[in-house]
Amino acid sequence: MSTGSRLISPKIQDKIATGIMWLAGMVIMGILVTFLFYMLYKGVPVLSWEFITGEPSDIRAGGGVGPQLFNSFYILTLSLLFSIPLAVGAGIYLAEYAGNNRLTDMIRLSTESLATVPSIVLGLFGMIIFVNMLGMGFSIIGGALTLMLLNLPVLVRVTEESIRTVPVHYREASLALGATKWQTIYRVVLPNALPGIMTGLTLTAGRALGETAILIFTAGTTVSRQLPDFDVTAAGETLAVHMWYVMAIGLVPDRIDIANGIGALLIITILIFNLMFTIPGKLLQRKMGSSRH
């Protein structure tokens, strides 16, 4: 910079740098749009009622992904049901109760660490604990419990952050009216923190829906012959796992088509998730924000 400034004036440098930053921003958006459109362009033509609801085939072409679609949402729902109460509880503790002490420090360190544990490691842990030690085998319940470990740290952080954004005087008003701490949290703090928590929940659900490494060795790569099968001890291959399986190991001749179709299904689901929850969440926040003043 010091040598360059003699050759090119700072004004021109500023222009060049600004141009480069714009370019970077556009490249970043461009990559995303390319990914989404490529997957939709390739995959949407594959999507048919037979494909979406049909039975998979191991060797012949023309198999569907019905059971995998069902399993994806079943495992996702179960894992969220397990993680939400725990994560909200931990988030409330960190935001409302935690003092500045060793315990809090340890919990924070644990949550941060859990968030960076690679998902394959979580998968192997689930395999040791749920599949082997607790004898669940490759099952929907084993997969959902392991997937919970992925959801927890994100949900804890989001809950804590959302609760912290609720103004202190809301709490003071409630406490001054004679409400207990729990009543205050339940009636005043949580409803106001809800939009933020919902947004975080969407992000978590999207991530969990596409998760593969955790589920291969806990929910397995096979599906039940019945559809829908609510038995939590049945093996439960999900869409994302199936997409990987057909590409890496599968023998079906139309595996590229199947993978394209699943890719499009996953992208569409994630787009719907984001539009359905994120945008109403933002609107709600804005509305409440404006009524505050």
Partner: peptide, 23 residues
């Protein structure tokens, strides 16, 4: 626009990244 777009980056499943890489 770019904020939610970065969220979408995170939401794309890693198998999809891998599949696009492969193809």
């Amino acid at each position: 626009i770019m904020r939610p777009a970065t969220d979408l980056y995170v939401a794309i499943p890693s198998v999809v990244y891998g599949f696009v890489g492969l193809t």
